[in-house]
């Protein structure tokens, strides 16, 4: 079996004394789109936080391109090639749209993404490039957050709840653009409560429940029934 791009192996995560993840394992290959689904509090965001270095983790529990990166400082994880679109977008309020994108690109990893490409993917951002980022609509802000993450030219993109707080039609639009991004072979982990969207895109599904993996496998082999059983912990 070739080395996967990302290998999460028996990952435990804690908030202080509270244990949020119990021995999670997950593999993502190059170019693969994986969806991590599960109910509120299942540990989806915690998993992403552990991967990007926001939460402490054992070094060997997260391996990226064969290198143990668990617990590495967040600013070094992005330099290694992992970018996160955080839950709730969290744009820099005192920066313009363009400055938000530029700061995403300041790790200066080589790759196809630059300002011009982000603007051609999301033309509306080019029009609003000098506006304060938080003056945009929710959907446009989500585009900035995605663009900001792409600017670091990641090899693995983590998306936390892209649909959160957005109108269904906007969610559809955002996911249509995500399909264009992944078409070029960028590996993506999508975390969603809205499983419909996630299932449409993903080739690999991982369903979390109360901090553990309840169901995992290729999307083609999953039935709706199995997923809803895992999702609701039946």
């Amino acid at each position: 079996m070739p080395e996967p791009l990302l290998a999460v192996e028996k990952l435990d995560a804690f908030y202080g004394d509270f244990q949020a993840l119990f021995g999670i394992s997950l593999r993502v290959d190059r170019g693969e789109v994986a969806a991590v689904i599960g109910a509120n509090g299942a540990g989806k965001s915690t998993l992403l936080k552990s991967i990007v270095g926001w939460l402490p983790a054992q070094a060997e529990a997260v391996r990226f391109k064969g290198q143990a990166i668990g617990g590495m400082a967040a600013h070094r994880v992005v330099a290694a090639g992992i970018a996160l679109v955080p839950e709730g977008r969290r744009l820099f309020a005192s920066l313009s749209v363009e400055e938000n994108l530029l700061i995403g690109g300041q790790v200066k990893r080589p790759g196809p993404w630059n300002l011009a490409r982000v603007y051609s993917l999301f033309p509306v951002l080019a029009e609003k490039r000098l506006s304060p980022a938080t003056s945009l609509s929710g959907g446009q802000q989500q585009m900035v957050a995605i663009g900001r993450a792409l600017m670091s030219n990641p090899e693995l993109l983590l998306c936390d709840e892209l649909s959160l707080g957005l109108a269904p039609i906007i969610v559809k639009e955002i996911y249509a653009q995500m399909a264009m991004i992944t078409a070029e072979g960028l590996a993506v982990i999508i975390v969603e409560q809205d499983i419909g969207q996630a299932l449409k895109m993903a080739s690999h599904i991982c369903c979390l429940a109360v901090g553990g993996v309840a169901l995992e496998g290729p999307a083609t082999q999953m039935t709706r029934e199995a997923i809803s059983a895992a999702y609701f912990g039946a």
């Binding site: 600013h75 992005v78 820099f92 995403g104």
Partner: peptide, 24 residues
């Protein structure tokens, strides 16, 4: 300047600033 941008970003949200490769 890029440094000023980094100052403002860290001031806004130091946690997300780290995701941009900034060592706060």
């Amino acid at each position: 300047t890029a440094l000023g941008r980094a100052f403002r970003a860290v001031s806004d949200d130091q946690e997300v600033a780290r995701l941009m490769g900034l060592n706060n």
